[in-house]
Write a protein that binds this DNA or RNA. Structure first.
Length: 715
RNA sequence: GGCGCGGUAGCUCAGCUGGUCAGAGCGUAUGAUUCAUAAUCAUAAGGUCGGGAGUUCAAGCCUCCCCCGCGCUACCA
């Protein structure tokens, strides 16, 4: 067992609020894990913070007519408060705009440079000649090559979610000036990731690095290892660690060619974990370094699956390249959470926003946490539905758990005025775990202990759904214990039985008041209050219970006075669910027409003026498609044979997503006939078919109005 | 097209290196019960473990082919 733990949760990007997908993906599992470790008396630091740099934030700022600073301040505050309200208990929630972070990142850059980890390379990037600056991917918009959305960004299309590069965009234009950008050379520092490939492969697959066993790869999730190997097998390439950005951490100024260059996200965001730890250490007058550099520290990154490669390959490479840092022992990435059958989408407003949830359903933080843990996407994508949320709350939390707690407390007050009775330990009764079995107080306490241990093992293996299920089993067994022994009847003629049974049931409740804290921290405190036990802080309360149970001691001693019974959870009425569903749909619909309305307004800008001679260079001919077939191994390409009258041409055209080969045979088309041949997928294309494209990205052939002879010119 | 991860009872999901692995929770049905928020407890339902072929004494779990979902990636003049 390691001496200390450092747990990180992915830094939220400060250009929008938090939704339930973020929660289920990274923050909730991290929070459960950390709270559990604390209850077990472990030394653990849990860090997170806002990722506040990058072009998306400046784009948003310009759109809203404010400064980037105002954007990140707004969302940093909102996200931080939302985490607090939903009970995510970071030791520190830092931010990457802090000077401490800038220094930390720059120091990393200097160290990597010093270690010879970079190569300076020139590449061509889009440049806006009107605005006079290089364009971040996010500053370039154009038509998405996948879904034909005319307003896709250079890094991603928000309509279809495709990851893009600016050169893939059709008709790219600058968001700064509207001008068509031009390619221009620029210099950047590239991390020689290729040199790290070999050890990364070994480390990922065997857990060994530099001959030392650092982790057991069998404990890593399949999809994490799989995704890494997929990358490794394709060969790691040097990756640019700097960009031409205007909002971020400067490349240290003393370094030549650093003007205008910022550290790219790889050398910015993950280092935020380190600067957060530094700030935490400053605040607590302690040293941050053991948490990042001591072999006896377990470093664990909680992230969503979109972050696997960053955290399992690139960041470890950076840490190793630096030289002094430890590597993560696990990166338990979750998959994605869907909402009511569709992917969560910030831009389409298909989401449950956490800040709205906590405002609209106050006091129901744990209801949400419970349902999200129950459906946590641990191994595969999973689904949140309002109906399911209502069901899990009403049946499992209210019916099973709160019902159990309430009936125990009520029976305690009815029979013993709320004072825990002493018991006859030799008295036998029917076990709540099995109606056929006879149990004693000691044997049943022992069984409780085993269950708690079982739960703990699951948490340690990041199986949070299973861990929570085991706790609910304790509640069910408690209910069964009451059911089988019927204390409400036995009180008349067998009072000793009632004492044992109720005392035992109360031990279950008391154990749950601690064990539930990682999952349902608010309910756990309510329960403590009801039991008249001290509220939990982050001491080793669960470890203490383990120790007591191991000795055969109860969790609550006789003569302890309980507080009044209350409802731990309340039912969610149908109206609440109906209004949430309606709200979700209204938001989605409001968003739909808006997209259509704005679309026609964004015609591609006019290209620069040309002379007749330029036009005259184009040799456009009429032709007829004779044959058409799909190109092997290409989704978008059709191989066409076109009759130009005087000859037949083979033309490869990227229209396969729009037309079936059969339906276009015989079609009359216009062909740009003197375009230089180009080979695609091994086929030489001898020309280009002219197509019209609309705002939706639909394509139409451009043809003569009526049947027309092949091979004649167009002017 | 390539690669990765998935496709298990109505729903949401567990099933590690092949041999009590055919499971859990919810929903449903029937019965029991009334201390408890129309809560609880018991029992049941017969799911060809995406489809097909193969390896093996034995396969959700291994191999091959195919289909579907998600992610990454290639092609788009």
């Amino acid at each position: 067992m390691k001496k200390r733990y450092l747990v990180t949760a992915a830094l939220p990007y400060a250009n929008g609020p938090l939704h339930i997908g973020h929660l289920a993906g990274a923050y909730l599992p991290a929070d459960i894990y950390v709270r559990y470790l604390r209850l077990m008396g472990k030394n653990v630091v849990f860090v997170c913070g806002s990722d506040e740099h990058g072009a998306a934030i400046t784009v948003r700022a310009r759109k809203e007519g404010v400064t980037p600073r105002e954007i990140v301040d707004k969302y940093h505050t909102s996200i931080r408060d939302t985490f607090e309200k939903i009970g995510i208990a970071f030791d520190i929630y830092h931010r990457t705009s802090e000077p401490l972070h800038h220094q930390t990142s720059q120091d990393f850059f200097r160290k990597l440079l010093e270690n010879g980890q970079f190569e300076e390379k020139e590449s061509d990037q889009y440049y806006d000649e009107v605005a006079g600056q290089f364009l971040a991917d996010r500053y370039i918009i154009g038509t998405c090559p996948v879904c034909a959305n005319p307003d896709a960004y250079g890094d991603q299309c928000e309509k279809c979610g495709s990851t893009l590069s600016p050169t893939q965009l059709i008709n790219p234009r600058s968001t700064l000036s509207g001008a068509a950008p031009v390619m221009r050379p620029t210099t950047h520092w590239y991390l020689k990731l290729n040199e790290h490939e070999a050890w990364l492969r070994e480390w990922i697959n065997t857990g060994k690095a530099d001959g030392r066993q650092l982790h057991n790869p069998a404990t890593w999730k399949n999809h994490v290892v799989g995704q890494c190997n997929s990358w490794l097998d394709q060969g790691l390439q040097p990756r640019a660690m700097t960009r031409d950005l205007d909002w971020g951490v400067d490349v240290p100024h003393e370094i030549p060619h650093s003007e205008g260059k910022k550290l790219y996200v790889w050398l910015d965001a993950p280092i935020g974990y380190i600067s957060a730890t530094k700030q935490w250490a400053l605040d607590h007058h302690t040293n941050w370094e053991p948490y990042w550099k001591d072999k006896d520290t377990s470093l664990i990154h909680f992230i969503g699956k979109d972050n696997i490669v960053f955290h399992c390959l690139i960041f470890p490479a950076i840490l190793k390249a630096h030289g002094d840092f430890i590597l993560p022992v696990n990166v338990p990435a979750n998959q994605f959470l869907n909402l009511e059958g569709n992917k969560l989408s910030t831009s389409r407003n298909w989401a449950v926003w956490v800040h709205e949830y906590v405002a609209e359903l106050p006091g129901r933080e744990d209801d949400l946490r419970y349902n999200m843990i129950k459906n946590m996407p641990e191994q595969r994508d999973s689904e949140f539905t309002w109906k399911g949320f209502q069901e899990s709350t009403n049946t499992e939390l209210v019916g099973n758990l709160a019902g159990f707690v309430h009936r125990v407390l009520v029976l305690m007050h009815k029979n013993y005025s709320g004072v825990v009775p002493g018991i006859d330990a030799s008295r036998e009764f029917r076990s709540g775990w099995d109606a056929e079995q006879v149990g004693t107080y000691d044997s049943e306490l022992h069984r409780l202990h085993l269950k708690l241990e079982e739960m703990g093992r699951e948490v340690e293996q990041f199986n949070f759904r299973e861990a929570l299920r085991i706790l609910m089993e304790i509640s069910s067994a408690g209910n069964a214990l009451l059911q089988f022994n019927e204390p409400w009847k036995a009180i008349k003629d067998d009072p000793e039985l009632v004492k044992v049974v109720l005392n035992l049931a109360l031990q279950y409740v008391a154990a749950l008041s601690v064990a539930l804290r990682p999952f349902l921290p608010f309910a756990a405190q309510r329960l403590r209050q009801m039991l008249n036990l001290p509220l939990l802080n982050d001491d080793s309360a669960l470890l203490d219970i383990h120790n007591e149970l191991a000795e055969g001691n109860p969790v609550i001693r006789p003569n302890h006075a309980l507080n009044a019974a209350e409802h731990l959870f309340t039912r969610i009425p149908d109206e609440v669910i109906a209004s949430q569903v309606a709200k979700l749909q209204a938001a989605a619909q409001a968003n739909q027409p808006a997209a259509e309305k704005t679309a026609p307004a964004t015609y591609p800008p006019m290209k620069e003026e040309i002379q007749y001679d330029d036009f005259a260079k184009l040799d456009i001919r009429t032709g007829t498609i004779l044959e058409a077939s799909k190109v092997e191994k290409a989704d978008k390409l059709l191989k066409l044979t076109v009759d130009l009258g005087f000859e037949k041409r083979t033309i490869v055209s990227g229209i396969a997503l729009h037309f079936q080969p059969e339906e276009i045979v015989g079609k009359q088309v216009l062909v740009l006939a003197n375009l230089a041949p180009r080979t695609m997928r091994g086929i030489e294309s001898q020309g280009m078919i002219l197509m019209a494209e609309d705002a939706e990205g639909r394509l139409s052939f451009v043809s003569p109005e009526t049947s027309w002879p092949n091979g004649w010119g167009v002017k």
